[in-house]
Simulated scan of single mutants.
Amino acid sequence: MSSKVISFRFSDAEIQALEALQTEEDSGSLNQTAARLLRGILGISKEVSTGVDINKLVEEKIAAAVGSLQAKLELVEERLGKLRA
């Protein structure tokens, strides 16, 4: 079976996402992580192991965003209150 090297660029955000999906089996290599994930998507491997609870990660990101939004809204309300006074 022959093989070919595939190369492409990732943004900083994409690299961070890829790093979050690394497992011990990837030996710290982003190339191995990407290859493992792509093989899983292509159905070449039976299971895509991320080592990360994606639902928990998404929940944490949403909670952080909501908290940030709430803090900003409180600041706006405070400033509006001062303008009204």
Rank of each mutant, 00 (worst) to 15 (best):
F10A: 01
S45C: 08
E77Y: 14
K61I: 12
L38Q: 07
Q32R: 15
T23R: 14
A34G: 03
G67E: 01
G81K: 05
K61V: 12
L18M: 09
E19C: 05
S7T: 15
E47I: 05
E25W: 03
K82Q: 11
E47T: 11
S29H: 07
I44R: 12
A20G: 03
I41D: 00
F8H: 08
L73K: 11
G81R: 07
A65T: 09
E59Y: 08
A20N: 10
A20P: 05
N55E: 09
L69Y: 09
G67Q: 06
V58P: 06
L69C: 04
T50L: 09
V58G: 00
S27H: 14
V5D: 02
A35K: 15
R79W: 05
L57K: 13
N55W: 04
L57Q: 07
L21K: 06
G67H: 07
A13D: 05
V66N: 03
A85F: 13
L37T: 08
L30I: 11
E25I: 00
K61G: 01
T33F: 05
S45T: 15
E78P: 02
K72P: 01
A65C: 05
E78K: 14
T23N: 04
S49D: 05
A71M: 07
E59H: 09
N55Q: 13
K56N: 03
V66R: 13
N31T: 12
Q16I: 12
I44M: 12
E19P: 01
K4D: 06
V66C: 02
Q70G: 00
G43P: 07
V58D: 00
M1H: 09
E74P: 01
M1W: 10
K72I: 04
E59G: 00
F8S: 00
E77R: 10
S49P: 04
S7M: 09
G67R: 11
T23Q: 06
S68H: 14
L75P: 01
V5P: 04
K56I: 02
A85N: 14
K56E: 04
V52E: 00
L21A: 05
R9V: 09
E14S: 11
L21F: 10
Q70A: 06
L69D: 00
R9W: 14
T23A: 02
R84V: 08
L42D: 03
